[in-house]
């Protein structure tokens, strides 16, 4: 297991409030990791820093030893928490766009998944329903052979059927050399897929543990432990 991600004293300050406070940890490759915390705990801030959309106030994050930049972006597949597709493109065009820029993108796999959902490649993105837009975003991300997949709240605000679809898509496209980082506050739906969890609260990392260890040592589900840790 090689080191994939390293965080060193990562801090992000917004004025006087710290969205992330001195976070340090490392992640290995070959894991599905849950980034768990209530809304506003700093999950999205962390993910944005990882993807180079925000710059940290101090400290640093390294992906395979490099700070976020063009070369890490080539191996990190990122699903933002909002729909980001430019509305004027067709499904086909956005697939071509991804294929052009990401060397690890498989057009074939993308069309296969779209086909299974019955989404026509000729359709305009703005004509898709909200649920299908989200699914297209997920398909685009999961059609890459990335080293690290970063999924920000992939199951928030989707119906249970779509939730199952998201989870099975993640499992079906997972490869053992890659890692997946999934941020969410809906733990019970996703905990069985996870190897490890990171709990963050108010920008602090409060727990990093294997989920099997949690179940074996505490005799409780991750969701229960989460509720205990974040009790108010």
């Amino acid at each position: 297991m090689s080191e994939l991600l390293r965080c060193e004293n990562l801090t992000k300050q917004y004025g006087k409030t710290a969205a992330l406070n001195n976070i340090s940890f490392t992640l290995e490759s070959g894991k599905i990791v849950g980034l768990l915390g209530p809304n506003g705990s700093g999950k999205t801030t962390f993910i944005k820093i990882l993807n180079g959309l925000l710059t940290p106030t101090s400290g640093a994050v390294y992906i395979e030893g490099e700070r976020p930049g063009p070369s890490t972006k080539a191996k990190v597949a990122y699903l933002p928490d909002n729909v980001y597709l430019n509305a004027w493109m067709t499904v086909e065009q956005i697939v071509a766009y991804f294929a052009d820029f990401y060397a690890d993108f498989s057009t074939e796999r993308a069309f296969e998944m779209l086909n299974r959902l019955g989404i026509s490649p000729k359709q305009k993105l703005k004509a898709l329903s909200k649920g299908n837009k989200e699914k297209v975003c997920l398909i685009l991300v999961m059609s890459r052979q990335a080293k690290l997949y970063v999924l920000d709240e992939p199951i928030a605000g989707v119906d249970p059927a779509a939730r199952d679809y998201v989870i099975s898509t993640i499992i079906n496209n997972y490869n053992p050399e890659a890692s997946v980082l999934i941020s969410t506050h809906l733990i019970s739906d996703i905990e069985q897929v996870l190897d490890e969890v990171l709990f963050i609260r108010d920008g602090h990392l409060v727990l990093k543990k294997s989920v099997e260890d949690i179940r074996a040592e505490e005799g409780k589900s991750v969701d229960e432990l989460f509720r205990e840790v974040f009790k108010w």
């Binding site: 099975s168 997972y174 190897d195």
Partner: peptide, 16 residues
């Protein structure tokens, strides 16, 4: 492994 994992909705590493 992947199919089994998807069927149960669990982590492929765990199935492995």
């Amino acid at each position: 492994v992947r199919e089994l994992a998807a069927g149960w909705g669990v982590n492929p590493n765990t199935v492995q």
